[in-house]
Design a protein around this nucleic acid. Structure first.
Length: 718
RNA sequence: GCGCGCGUAGCUCAGCGGCUAGAGCAUCGCCCUUACAAGGCGGGGGUCGCCGGUUCGAAUCCGGCCGCGCGCACCA
């Protein structure tokens, strides 16, 4: 108690590491796999990139999940928060490749085996950081049972899923138009493509002479170099201007190929001249049209981003940009460019490398999704999976209803290599390599999200029927931001239903994206990112801080409780701007609760027991009724995923009702001339109120409440 | 283009048919009263984006604008 006398402020920097150490060594975070999933409570953490660092989204989601986990742990449920990291194929491979380049070598020089070895080493060096950061937040993940999507057992699950779906015909290999990332030299999925508005290109109008020699057809394009791969020109079937030309041919300039003039309703009569050059090899729409009309598919841009031999002389071997220049110059020389104008439009870029996506036809592995999607839609419609806020389920259903095949192969080395082997014309798909000589394994690896889709059950030992699986699957809640609802959540539901016959979780919580104080995205490149650890332990504010009323300079060491409270308080179903005031409010709350406890503890001997309240006055009865209400409200708000209200409601109760009113009102009853009998009764009431308040607040601000619980002589906090 | 959401006090937000529209932070005034000055008490500050409609009554419901954000689909 001497401590309490002297320390007038709650000091998270001193207290939190000490408390954290105790949680980690106490066995609190690790449940034995007993009982059934229905009795127990489990959450699978969205696995962060193994080499990643904690960002604001992790911190918010960590606060949310830990609040749920602690609430249910305090209710006496056996609680497991499944921990693990993701191998994050592209991101991790790129990090290591960058390192290699700085060392003056490349992955090609190293060779595949040595490169993969280097990635494992990289993971050893950099892999632990984000897990340590989750600890610092007070997140009670099961640290004694950490998984990785490249663990041997996990890999077995991934391969089994691939083989099963292959055998069923849902996974197949095909030449198809993909989004090609010329920097990564890999295909990427539709979900990894980001449209960027406002890109200024030149729109060229090019004359294609009619084969009959009488006249010409003018087409418009921003990519003149792709004309080398044209295999038709299309007009709208109802376009009277061109009706007489359908079935005739044009001569493709520079190449001399004869192209049919076809009619397709895709063509917009009002755009440009109403005639569209068709390049099935390098445009997704043209690809569709080409397949409809049985047109040849020519690839003039290679996977290396250079013009192929099919582009012909003198273009073969040039970069795309050089080829464009050359094509334009040659057309100009022939007087075939009818117009050029600036054209601002939307262009697809790779989210992975930032490169402009090059659509091309490539031999890739695909997964047919329609059959898997149907039951995944049903479970949300009928409510066996509930998405919060409800409005997000419309997005989920809309996306699944129009789902397209998923390109699951990536031309990378780091990841789950596709379990398919070739020998001449023979193809073998299996978990183990086939017997016999001369088999060569497919070099591609699977999209990282393929393995992530198995996360809630593969982490627990599936496909074996492990005790963990029985005790903790299906999980209860999946919490994440909107951006991976399709990329990850929907796919987990599909795979869970297909391979376990169960929904992998019953509730999906979609939380806010926290934007920078000026309303833009938090990002390193914009200088708008805020490091949650800098908030907890003190550290630099970001260079960009919007117009919020906060001074420049370093963050004070707000502490994990303050950060947790603040993030929960500012979160909602909408995107929100980061508000340092909310973090400061959390700090004030922790300090307030600490001092309220000092006030009581320095006057009343707690005796380490939970006393029966003995209300004697109207204010006693009032605070007890308010206490009961705040307990019920807080629980209901947490269960309803309304974390902002849960946090702010606690703040209002502790500041407004408990401290400003009740403690002020009872001060005279604790003084020197207080009536002893009343003083004793009041002491019991105060201790009871304090104890219950601390317990109610614990899931949100666990450190200070744990510390106070101990200072008051109570032992088990949970 | 289609869909979703949002525009309320200087800032971040709550309220979503009915008491003079709220909170935190900021601001102003008064308190160095022995839990906390990272405190306490009190005050000022909003024609609730704009226009119309429904209603006894509208931030709150409906329609139309304007502005912002997000998602999906995209036109060469």
């Amino acid at each position: 108690m001497a401590d309490l006398q002297e320390r007038t402020r709650f000091d998270p920097a001193e207290v939190e590491p000490r408390i954290l150490e105790r949680w980690l060594s106490s066995g609190l975070v690790h449940p034995e796999p007993d009982g059934t999933a229905a009795e127990n409570y489990s959450i699978a953490v969205p696995p962060p990139n193994v080499t990643g660092v904690l960002h604001m989204g992790h911190a918010l989601n960590g606060s949310i999940q830990d609040t749920l986990i602690r609430t249910n742990r305090m209710r006496g449920r056996r609680t497991k928060w499944i921990l693990g990291t993701d191998h994050a194929g592209i991101a991790t491979q790129r990090q290591v490749e960058k390192r290699l380049i700085s060392e003056g070598t490349t992955r090609e020089e190293l060779g595949r085996e040595a490169f993969v070895e280097r990635v494992w080493e990289w993971r050893e060096e950099h892999g632990g950081q984000i897990v340590e950061q989750f600890k610092r937040l007070g997140a009670t993940l099961d640290y004694s049972d950490e998984r990785f999507t490249m663990d041997e057992r996990y890999v077995q699950a991934v391969l089994k899923v691939f083989v099963d779906l292959y055998d069923e015909g849902l996974i197949y290999r095909d030449y198809y138009m993909v989004n090609w990332d010329p920097v990564l030299r890999s295909a990427i999925s539709d979900l990894e493509v980001e449209e960027q508005e406002g890109i200024a290109d030149t729109l060229y109008s090019i004359a294609y002479p009619l084969a009959s020699g009488e006249g010409e057809l003018v087409v418009a394009t921003v990519r003149p170099e792709t004309m080398l791969a044209d295999t038709a020109v299309a007009v709208h079937p109802d376009d009277e201007r061109y009706a007489h030309l359908v079935g005739q041919e044009v001569i493709l300039p520079l190449v001399g190929r004869r192209l049919p003039i076809i009619a397709d309703p895709y063509v917009k009569t009002e755009f440009g001249t109403g005639a569209l050059k068709i390049t099935p090899g390098h445009d997704p729409n043209d690809f569709e049209i080409g397949r409809r009309h049985g047109l040849p598919e020519i690839g003039v841009i290679g996977e290396d981003g250079l013009m192929t031999a099919a582009a012909g002389e003198p273009y073969a071997g040039l970069t795309v940009a050089a080829a464009q220049e050359r094509v334009v110059a040659d057309l100009d020389a022939q007087g075939l460019i009818r117009a050029r104008e600036e054209y601002v439009h939307t262009v697809p870029f790779s989210q992975r490398s930032g490169a402009r996506v090059e659509p091309l036809i490539s031999l890739q592995w695909f997964m047919r999704m329609d059959e898997l999607a149907r039951p995944a839609i049903d479970v949300v419609r009928e409510g066996s999976v509930r998405i919060h806020p409800e409005s997000q389920s419309r997005r989920y259903i809309a996306w699944l209803s129009e789902i397209r095949p998923w390109c699951i192969s990536r031309q990378l080395w780091w990841g789950h290599q596709i379990p398919v082997w070739y020998r001449g014309e023979e193809v073998y798909c299996g978990i183990e390599a086939p017997q016999g000589d001369g088999w060569e394994q497919d070099p591609d690896v699977l999209d990282t999200w393929f393995s992530s889709a198995l996360w809630p059950f593969a982490t627990l030992g599936w496909p074996e029927r492990t005790p963990d699986l029985r005790a903790f699957f299906p999980t209860d809640v999946l919490s994440t931001a909107r951006d991976i609802l399709f990329l990850w959540v929907a796919r987990m539901v599909m795979m869970g239903l297909r391979f376990t016959d169960r929904v992998p979780f019953t509730d999906v919580n979609i939380h806010s994206v926290i934007q920078s104080p000026d309303g833009r995205r938090m990002s390193k490149s914009l200088g708008t990112g805020i490091d949650p650890i800098a908030l907890i332990e003190g550290g630099p504010r970001p260079p960009v801080y919007g117009n919020q009323a906060r001074p420049p300079g370093d963050f004070p060491a707000y502490g994990a409780d303050a950060v947790r409270f603040g993030l929960l308080a500012m979160s909602s179903s909408q995107d929100v701007r980061f508000s340092e005031e909310k973090i400061a409010q959390g700090q004030a709350l922790a300090n307030k609760l600490y001092n309220a406890t000092r006030f009581v503890a320095l006057r009343i001997d707690s005796g380490g027991v939970d006393p029966e309240p003995q209300p004697r006055t109207v204010e006693d009865r009032w605070i007890l009724s308010r206490l009961q209400a705040i307990e019920a409200e807080t629980q209901a708000r947490i269960d309803g995923f309304d974390f902002s209200r849960a946090a702010l409601g606690l703040y209002d109760f502790i500041f407004g009702e408990l401290c400003d009113w009740y403690l002020e009102l009872v001060k005279p009853r604790l003084g020197e001339d207080a009536e002893p009998e009343d003083r004793a009764a009041l002491g019991a009431t105060l201790l009871h109120v304090l104890r219950e308040t601390i317990a109610t607040a614990h899931p949100i601000i666990p450190f200070v409440t744990e510390e106070l619980w101990e200072l008051l002589g109570w032992t088990e906090a949970e």
